[in-house]
Write a protein that binds this DNA or RNA. Sequence first.
RNA 1: GGCGGGUUGCCCGAGUGGUCAAAGGGAGCAGACUGUAAAUCUGUCGCGAGAGCUACGGAGGUUCGAACCCUCCACCCGCCA
Length: 428
Amino acid sequence: MRNNDGVTHVIDDLQWRDLIALSTDLDALRAELARGPMTLYCGFDPTAPSLHFGHLTQILTVRRLQLAGNRPLGLVGGATGLIGDPRETSERQLHPRETVAAWVERIRAQVEPLLDFTGEYAARMVNNLDWTAELSALDFLRDIGKHFRVNKMIAKDAVSARLNSDAGISYTEFSYQILQGLDYLELFRRYGCRLQTGGSDQWGNLTAGTDLIHRMEGESVHLLATPLVVDANGQKIGKSTGGGNVWLDPEMTSPYAFYQYLINIEDASVGMFLRRFTFLDREEIMALEKETAERPSARAAQRRLAEEVTRLVHGETETRQAIDASQALFGRGDLSSLNAGTLRAALSEAGLGQVPALGTVAELFRTSGLSSSLGDARRTIAEGGAYINNQRVADGDAVVERSELLHGRWLVLRRGKRTVAGLELAAE
RNA sequence: GGCGGGUUGCCCGAGUGGUCAAAGGGAGCAGACUGUAAAUCUGUCGCGAGAGCUACGGAGGUUCGAACCCUCCACCCGCCA
């Protein structure tokens, strides 16, 4: 499993994949990794019921390090999630303790399948609530707080941005970096953890830990920060295009929707996605990039990307179903030529709703969820973006006839080019 | 504790008594081109078929009429203590 001594050092691999945006002394880390297994950690805060696509960068980086023969600690922020790290814009709304506790469990369940908990380099999950819940305010201030200088704390990007905004910042969020620093110290003491990874936007919180360990233990430990997902022009991108609305939880984003998100990655970014989110080797990725340059419309790279990443997150069966559904709904063939079983399977992947009776086109678009209201449905229809069974519809008030049902039961509704939903007429 | 400034739609932000469902930008959605891409251009962007309804931090008030004026409350920012 260890390949440090062989063809590629894991740091070289991470660099090739453009996964290192910031780091502490990289040569020192490289040397330490070469000497033997290191224990590393990466934390995930429960600020939502699920992690989103962007978090995969972190989880998979940890996995790469594990595959290279190191021991990961997956930290869920049962404590830090109660506080919330400072966002650039405004103060966070605190969530109830029970909510955070429930999210901790869901997030733990999302991280676990992506790491290996067996063997010599077995991963371990930890929760920072375990060492902070009993910590008294006085101990916190005397033992930990004394090592933090306020002038350094307010210089950190996340804090200074807020100090300079008219939103301000509460003492709660200001203190967040101390808690994260304490996490690293604790994991250093308990498990000999000497490397923390995280997103580059977390740099200030990451360095809180190395500074604290340096002061209290006199040791220099390491950090690696991954870059944020940006578009081909290097611009920060919107939540949906950046994967911010693509959740890892299959209840929140179906495997089909997850697969579709990846199929639609822009050409200019697909290489970056392959490097960052798959375990394909250099040769294979470079071949796919060449393919994209030569025959972009074939989308070979996107197809492979979507298949690989969906399999990692949702498993083989779900991936197969997502691929089959995509082929059925976006394939060349006529929808009416699909057999009933294929059609039903495809629609249940895309999202299948039941209707007791047929109604007008606009009503059906609303009940399918493709349109948020009747007005929204009418607007889409007027704009020429509404299709039933791949036929554009022009009149929102037209009543859909039973004869239009595929196999006497189903309608395929589509909004725009790529959003599909199915409706099934309930048997009476 | 005192004084001053602020809280607008998903986000930023203009608006200080009717012509405001609220300028402008971003995000989103749709169309054209194409490849279920990107870029570009165009349209659209609270709910309602419509009359109308609901909305400019919250509650109340003045007025024929309030996002805009008054009172109280909450929260935020700045300066002073």
